[in-house]
Amino acid sequence: MANFSASTSPTIYQDPQIWQSLKVAIASSSGFQRWQLEHVLDEQRQDITLDHRVRRYLRETLETLAY
C-alpha cells in the first residue's frame, strides 16, 4: 500500500478535470441525491453551486464516518 503525506500528494482540486469528473459522479450518486433531498430546507438559496453542495456533502459524510 502506498504511503502519501498530505504535503506531497496533490489534491483533487488542483486538477480541474479530475474534480469536475468526480463532482459529476458524486452528484449523480443515490447517496448525494438522498442527502440533497434531506437538506432542501437548509439550502433555500438557489445560488448555492453544485461545487459547494458536493463539498458540503463530502465534508458531512466524512464527519459522520469519523464519528
Score class of each variant (00 low, 15 high):
residue 38 E to C: 01
residue 9 S to C: 14
residue 58 L to K: 01
residue 64 T to A: 15
residue 53 R to C: 02
residue 35 W to D: 02
residue 35 W to Q: 01
residue 20 Q to T: 13
residue 52 H to W: 04
residue 14 Q to N: 00
residue 45 R to Y: 10
residue 56 R to Y: 07
residue 61 T to V: 13
residue 36 Q to F: 12
residue 39 H to P: 10
residue 65 L to G: 06
residue 18 I to Y: 06
residue 52 H to K: 06
residue 12 I to Y: 15
residue 39 H to V: 07
residue 67 Y to E: 12
residue 56 R to S: 10
residue 40 V to P: 03
residue 44 Q to E: 12
residue 49 T to S: 13
residue 53 R to F: 00
residue 2 A to T: 01
residue 31 G to K: 03
residue 59 R to K: 11
residue 31 G to E: 07
residue 36 Q to R: 14
residue 14 Q to V: 00
residue 18 I to R: 07
residue 59 R to C: 11
residue 9 S to E: 13
residue 31 G to Q: 07
residue 34 R to F: 14
residue 1 M to D: 10
residue 58 L to A: 08
residue 13 Y to E: 12
residue 38 E to N: 02
residue 39 H to S: 12
residue 53 R to T: 00
residue 9 S to H: 09
residue 11 T to A: 03
residue 23 K to I: 04
residue 67 Y to C: 12
residue 13 Y to W: 11
residue 31 G to R: 06
residue 22 L to G: 04
residue 25 A to G: 00
residue 65 L to D: 07
residue 1 M to T: 08
residue 8 T to E: 05
residue 41 L to A: 06
residue 53 R to P: 00
residue 3 N to G: 08
residue 60 E to I: 02
residue 34 R to T: 15
residue 42 D to N: 09
residue 21 S to W: 08
residue 66 A to F: 13
residue 21 S to K: 11
residue 37 L to K: 10
residue 9 S to P: 11
residue 41 L to V: 03
residue 26 I to E: 00
residue 35 W to I: 01
residue 37 L to R: 11
residue 11 T to L: 03
residue 58 L to H: 02
residue 60 E to Y: 05
residue 30 S to E: 04
residue 16 P to D: 04
residue 53 R to G: 01
residue 10 P to W: 06
residue 46 Q to C: 02
residue 12 I to K: 14
residue 22 L to R: 04
residue 35 W to M: 02
residue 17 Q to P: 01
residue 45 R to E: 13
residue 62 L to K: 10
residue 23 K to Y: 03
residue 57 Y to P: 06
residue 42 D to V: 03
residue 56 R to D: 10
residue 10 P to S: 11
residue 47 D to N: 13
residue 48 I to Q: 09
residue 59 R to Q: 11
residue 34 R to S: 15
residue 12 I to F: 15
residue 17 Q to L: 09
residue 25 A to F: 00
residue 45 R to S: 12
residue 9 S to W: 13
residue 11 T to I: 02
residue 51 D to P: 05
residue 32 F to T: 01
residue 49 T to E: 03
residue 24 V to N: 04
residue 61 T to S: 14
residue 13 Y to C: 11
